[in-house]
Computed example of a mutant assay.
Amino acid sequence: MIVSEEGGRHRPEPTRIVVVVPVCNEEQLLPRCLRALRRSADAVAIPVRIQLVLNGCTDGSARVAGPDIEVVTLDEPNVGMARGLGFAAAGAGCGRETWFATTDADSAVDQWWLRRQLRHARRGADIVAGVVRVDDWSASTPVARARYEQRYRRPQGDGHGHVHGANLGFRADTYWDAGGFDALATGEDVDLVERATARGAHLVWAEDVVVTTSGRTEGRAPDGFAAHVRALDQVSEADSA
């Protein structure tokens, strides 16, 4: 079925989905991630392929994936390279009718994660940037939590304005046209969205597309979400000094 975006541009409705998850030493949290992804995949009526990329793993993450999960391995712990490898492995040759999505191994998508992305795609979205919720703030101070939540809810122009690799979806042709993920140790998500929108991709800031992520302050990417949470704690300590 062909659908129209406002402005008259026609885009095909996705007929399959590829989800890529980079994994770096996430043996403890990966089972929760995969359970959530399977539940979300069961809520859509089209085929879903879940592609794990083990990047620099030295733990037992490889043993967590079941027979329904595709796995590729990367020796280097580089999240941008891992996401890129995952889409190259699972989505090579995919075009306009394939929807790509990505999340993180320390995160859990909600049941309607994929279903709501597809709804935005049917309305003409090329990229869907969702929101994240922190599952456990015990590693941080109450002041850091309050500061994070206040800043996160602050309006960013016409939408929430946050790009998270843990909660991102896009059309396969939009992804390939932008050049895919670069081999960046951090910020690969923002970099991709900036390149895609510069080429005219239609971005939707989707507050109804939700992922719950770890509140840990020691993460895998050098300047990723955990580093952001840690920085808020440091600001809190400075304020109270």
Score class of each variant (00 low, 15 high):
S4A: 13
E5S: 12
G7A: 03
R9E: 14
I17V: 12
I17C: 09
I17R: 08
V19K: 06
V21R: 03
N25G: 09
Q28R: 15
L30D: 06
P31R: 06
R35C: 12
A43F: 12
A45R: 14
L54D: 10
C57D: 15
D59N: 12
D59Y: 11
G60W: 14
A62H: 15
I69P: 06
T73G: 09
E76H: 08
P77I: 06
N78V: 15
G80E: 07
M81S: 13
R83D: 04
F87W: 08
A89T: 01
G91W: 01
G93W: 09
C94A: 15
T98F: 00
A101S: 03
T102E: 11
T103F: 00
D104N: 03
D104H: 07
A105P: 10
W112H: 14
R116E: 07
H120S: 03
A121L: 04
R122D: 07
A125F: 00
I127Y: 03
V128K: 00
D136I: 00
D136F: 00
T141C: 00
R145T: 04
R145F: 00
A146I: 03
A146P: 04
R147Q: 11
Y148C: 06
Q150K: 09
G157M: 02
G157E: 04
A166Q: 06
A166Y: 01
G169V: 05
D173Y: 12
T174G: 11
W176M: 11
D177L: 14
D177S: 15
A178G: 07
G180T: 04
D182P: 07
T186K: 07
V190P: 05
V190N: 09
V193M: 02
R195M: 13
T197R: 13
T197G: 09
A198K: 13
L203Q: 01
A206D: 09
V209S: 02
V211Y: 00
V211G: 02
T213Y: 01
G215Q: 07
R220P: 10
P222V: 08
D223K: 08
F225L: 04
F225Q: 03
A226L: 01
R230I: 05
A231E: 11
A231R: 03
Q234A: 05
V235T: 05
S240R: 08
